[in-house]
Structure formats: structure tokens, C-alpha cells
Write a protein that binds this DNA or RNA. Structure first.
Lengths: 272, 272
DNA sequence: CCAAAAGTGTTCTCAGTACACCCATGT
DNA sequence: ACATGGGTGTACTGAGAACACTTTTGG
């Protein structure tokens, strides 16, 4: 473990961010269009170099603030995994520590100095080649199917989507997609958007959420509705402080991202 | 994302390894006693620098081979998470990509060039201060309670133990702790060693294992016993190729490492 | 014959599901 | 009045837990 800079030339260390939110009932991720040399013009996950005196988590948090334009990021941020295959960045040896973040609906993103623009993409629009094609969409965007992202970001994003879907099963982090106060109906919409399937039975969903200790806490006072929608006014809830969801809320068959490879396994661990 | 070496001085990148096995029915981890400057004399996770043209996984795999003395590591290896807090290594800025490995019983470890010696520690002996104290143990070792490891390795190891315990619930990786052919009794011992609790009912464990598709595959031929023990000879099984365990085999209450913080969460994600 | 470990069968209970139904609001 | 979403009650079903029992070896 001796450090010889000649034998072991240094690495650049970056953080990459898969920032998810839910817009119009669709799980969406923030991408930037690169304005610089490698993969110029391609879409990529936002990210940047870790500063000399900065923790990894702080670097991700800073990038998050820069991209969203908010002083303090209102959501959940966690490390995903690191990617350091030689050649993944043609310029130099880079190890990227990928992070995943969940946020409630945010203002339009801010394009950084290294990006032409930044926008939300629905996950469905990105890498599902056989998707219902001609859905009348308001904006006129390039009709892509299986958009190729810069670097190894397609792979990172696939793992990130899987992580988000899994987190909703075993943690109360679905509330991180909601505003401070929310109804159980809104919470159910979060699950449906992330998993990409409807949840079959409202009543049972409600009971599972309320049974799990520390998942949500009702807001006392008149159960009134801020979201001016139809129907009976709903009780409002706040997220609580539990770390796990017990019992978990399992995704139904057919839900998104039950991909087999998961967080990258070696070929096939055989043994003597 | 411009690279300016003056603004962003380089990092050293290492891999650290939490290699687990089961010895005498105890979950054990391989540690080395450091023989060099920072934390000289302290116990630490094995690890080393990533080479210039080496993938992260390959670096971990190489370290694994060096420590065990085996040309090809017979077990499971996966990335855990990265640690890069400034100051975690007093010499320089280091980002360490921690890995977790499971192996069947291995030969005595090999002390590397930077280590005085290497040996297996039972996880119970390491960081459980209130443990049954004077258990007559064969070897006469320093009676430690809460051994302080070098760097931030105590934290890494805690997360690693949690990962191992969780993996046994949702994946068939318990077989990675077993030799190529094993009995269901031996497989149950793996679960009990890792979780630190007995499994209450053999019959139900057996049924869970056999019901999960792709967990184990019986070895055809006479059900004979290689392990010369007491009792009726057992059917031998081999591990199979499933990625997940469905349905999972959940750890009973009281099992090891149901630590709340998990893979490091930010303070308390509040939102606007 | 007894101990020890493997293997099978059966009952009970509780969580998850499906489905029916009522409630309170906007239009 | 009716559409829309919120909320409650209840019967059914299947998986897991508990436990009793048989089988096959070594001593």
C-alpha cells in the first residue's frame, strides 16, 4: 500500500447524478446536453469533478443544487455505485461515483456552463425500444427510441432506475417524491409512476401504508385539500423518520426494472 | 466538466476488501495487521491501489487472489460502496472503492508485503462490546472488545456485514459460502452463522430453499455423504444460477446487522 | 438400543387480496 | 344528479410457523 506516483498515476474522480422526479404522472430523469469535447451534443447525466476538500456526498449535493438552482436540495440523495473502467472517458482515467436522488416536482432545470441545455426526460421515452410509438405528445421532440447517452451513462441510468424501484419497496422514500404534505392518493401515484403499473386496489395500499410504523404521520387539523381536485377532500400526511418499511410494499408482477443483472455481478462465481 | 489539474488535483484510488467466510460455525472476516506508516500495527481490511489499466472489479479480484494465495478466487465478489471523505487517509486524498466477497472455507491467508500478518477474525469478536465474555476459546488471543481498525474500516466493515446479511435474504449467494457440493444442513448453518441466530425449524427452511426456483439443484446419484458425520446421509446439492431468491428467506427478529443507518443517509431529507 | 441428523406431513394463523359499499366534494 | 376521488368493512386464500412423526446412519 505504498504510494508511488510513477507506478500508480492519479485518477480524476467525479460524481454523476441520476435525479428523478415525477412529472405528469411519469417517472422522469434530468439529463443535460453536453456542450464539450467528448460526446459533444449527446445527452448525459449531470455531474462534475469532486473538489479537493470535498466529501463525495457533498460533491453530489453541490451538483444537485447547481442543476436545480435551489440553495438546498429538497429530497433524498444516496450513493449508487462507482464506475471506473479504463477508457470510459477517452480523455483520462476517471472514476465516477454515481448517485441517485429523488425529488418532488422541481422548477425547470438550469443548464450549467458545460451544457447546452438541461431538461427532464421520462424514463419510458429513454430506453424502451418497443414502446407504444405514436403517442400524441404536446412538445415536438426528436422521436428517439433507445437514446444513446454519453459515456457509460445508459448503464448507470439502468441501475439507477432499478435502485429507485427497489427503494420504494423497502423504504419510506416514496415520500421524497411528494411535497411536504400529501394525500395517500398522491403517494399511490408515486408508486404507480415509478413502477409503471397501476396498483390494483386503493384500499389495500392505504392499509399497507398506514400499518407500516413510521411511514407517514397524519397532519392534524381539518382534513382539507390544497390540491384543488375533484372528489372528497383527503387527509393530509407528512413523511416520517423510519429507515425501513416493515412490512415492505412489494411491486406487483410486471413492474418496472426487475432487471436480472442488478448491480453488476461477475460472470458466474464457480468454486472449487 | 473541464479538467484543470490545478483546480482539481488528482486522487489516489484504492480498493478495500471485506472477505467473509465461515470458520467453526462463525462468520469471519479477513484482516491484516499493518506494517507501514499510517496506523502501523493496527488491523485493517486488505486492499491496495488500482492500477492504471485495471478495472475496479479486476483490482478487487487481484487483491483477493493475492491475499488468499489462490490463482482464481472461488466465491462471490461485488462492489459495496465508495469512501472518499477528505482526511480519511492522512497521507493524501484517497477514494476507496470497498468490495464484499464471500468464500467457502479457505487456506490460511497470506500476509502481503505491507502486512505483518493476516488472519481471520470472527465478526462477533470484533465490534460487539457486550458479548458473552469468557467463552473458553482454543487460541489465546488478545481479549478485545470493539477492536479499532485502521482508517474508516470499522464503518466499512459494519456496512459490509449488513450487506452480507441482507444478500442472504434476497439472493442465492449463501451457496458461495459452501463447497461445490453441500447438504441442506450445511446451507442452514451458513444462514445461522451469518445471521447469528438459529433458524427455529429445519423443515420449513428446507421447504423454502427447495421451493425457490434456481436456488439449489440436487446432485443425482446415490445420496451419500462426504462429510463423515453422524446421522442419516444427506442429499447433496449444488448452487444454481438464479440471480434472485423468490420468495426471499427473511431473517428472523434478533438477527445480526439490521442496523438502521444502512448505506449512509443524509441527515434528514426535509423538503419545501 | 440410543443419539444424531435427514426428511415428510399436518394443522393453525395471519397477512395479502379481491370486492362491496359508503362518504364528501365539484360541476 | 352524477362523476370523482377518499375511506371502511369483510370474506377468501395461500404462505409461513409450529410441531409431530418417520428414516437412516454411527456407536
Amino acid at each position: 500500500m505504498t504510494y508511488d506516483p510513477h507506478a500508480y498515476p492519479p485518477f480524476a474522480v467525479t460524481v454523476d447524478l441520476a435525479l428523478f422526479t415525477i412529472r405528469d404522472g411519469q417517472l422522469s430523469v434530468l439529463l443535460i446536453e453536453r456542450d464539450e469535447d467528448p460526446f459533444e451534443g449527446a445527452w448525459a447525466l449531470p455531474g462534475g469533478f469532486v473538489r479537493p476538500e470535498e466529501d463525495l456526498h457533498d460533491a453530489a449535493s453541490r451538483e444537485l443544487a447547481e442543476e436545480t438552482g435551489l440553495a438546498r436540495f429538497p429530497g433524498h440523495l444516496e450513493q449508487l455505485r462507482s464506475y471506473g473502467t479504463p477508457g470510459r472517458d477517452p480523455r483520462m482515467r476517471v472514476v465516477s461515483v454515481a448517485h441517485v436522488a429523488f425529488a418532488p416536482n422541481l422548477p425547470e432545470p438550469v443548464a450549467g456552463t458545460d451544457a447546452r441545455r438541461a431538461r427532464w426526460w421520462t424514463v419510458d421515452d429513454l430506453h424502451l425500444p418497443h414502446l407504444e410509438v405514436a403517442r400524441a405528445q404536446g412538445r415536438r421532440e426528436r422521436r428517439v427510441q433507445g437514446l444513446q447517452l454519453a459515456f457509460d451513462h445508459t448503464r448507470i441510468l439502468a441501475v439507477a432506475v432499478d435502485r429507485v424501484a427497489a427503494k420504494l419497496e423497502y423504504t419510506p422514500l416514496a415520500t421524497a417524491f411528494c411535497p411536504a404534505e400529501f394525500t395517500l392518493g398522491e403517494l399511490q401515484h408515486v408508486y404507480e409512476a415509478v413502477w409503471g403499473v397501476p396498483l390494483a386496489d386503493r384500499a389495500n395500499f392505504r392499509r399497507k401504508v398506514l400499518r407500516a410504523p413510521g411511514f407517514v404521520r397524519p397532519v392534524d387539523g381539518d382534513p382539507h385539500r390544497l390540491t384543488g381536485g375533484l372528489g372528497r377532500p383527503a387527509q393530509l400526511y407528512r413523511g416520517s423518520d423510519a429507515a425501513e418499511l416493515n412490512p415492505p410494499i412489494k411491486r406487483p408482477p410486471g413492474a418496472r426494472a426487475v432487471r436480472q443483472d442488478g448491480p453488476m455481478r461477475p460472470k458466474a462465481a464457480t468454486r472449487a
